[in-house]
Amino acid sequence: MVTRTTIGVLALQGGVREHLVALDLCGVSAVPVKTVEQLDLIQGLILPGGESTTIIKLASQYELVEPIKERIRSGFPVFGSCAGMILLADHIEAGTADQETFGGLDAVVQRNAFGRQTESFETPLRLDNDMAPFPGVFIRAPLVMSVGSGVNVISTIEGGAYAGRVVGIEQENLMATAFHPELTPDLRVHHRFVKMVNESQW
């Protein structure tokens, strides 16, 4: 029997629906996840955009932090966009006092790195070695300040004041973008994560 891949989207707060739609368009089964029990039903997890301080507080109140950390350590595939990137970073700058993360990505990520909402922007990105640029949507977005040696850069900003800055990274079972692929019709980033999930042991 062939079972269909099921990927969860952490549904405590934020842009959950857009990720569910994108996963559905990629041909996998997509479910919102709010409880520990639901983690057992999925082969991969997306941490959506939203307010990182709110999401981590709710995750901690409902005892999701340790189980998610545990899975991350054991090779469970997780993709985070925007706030999700902050939640996956081992180190954050400009967080609230003692702001916790799930961690796992050996990177330093700065919160709200481009400024306030009036500085939110769209710009073309380089994604791997694709010829076609990826439409980057940055909303009060974070930025990767530095990465460890085990981290692959998968996306950078093409031009303008931030040309060459790192906005997408990957490390073994983890993937993160400072931008919101779920707010665009371009599914390349989601396909990439689905592939990661399908190739993993989960």
Partner: peptide, 21 residues
């Protein structure tokens, strides 16, 4: 390769990120 601010996508997208909050 310009950075476009104030687009409908970043304005509406900001609200999308507040959902469930």
């Amino acid at each position: 390769s310009e950075m476009s601010t104030g687009t409908s996508r970043v304005k509406r997208g900001m609200a999308e990120m507040l959902k469930g909050g």
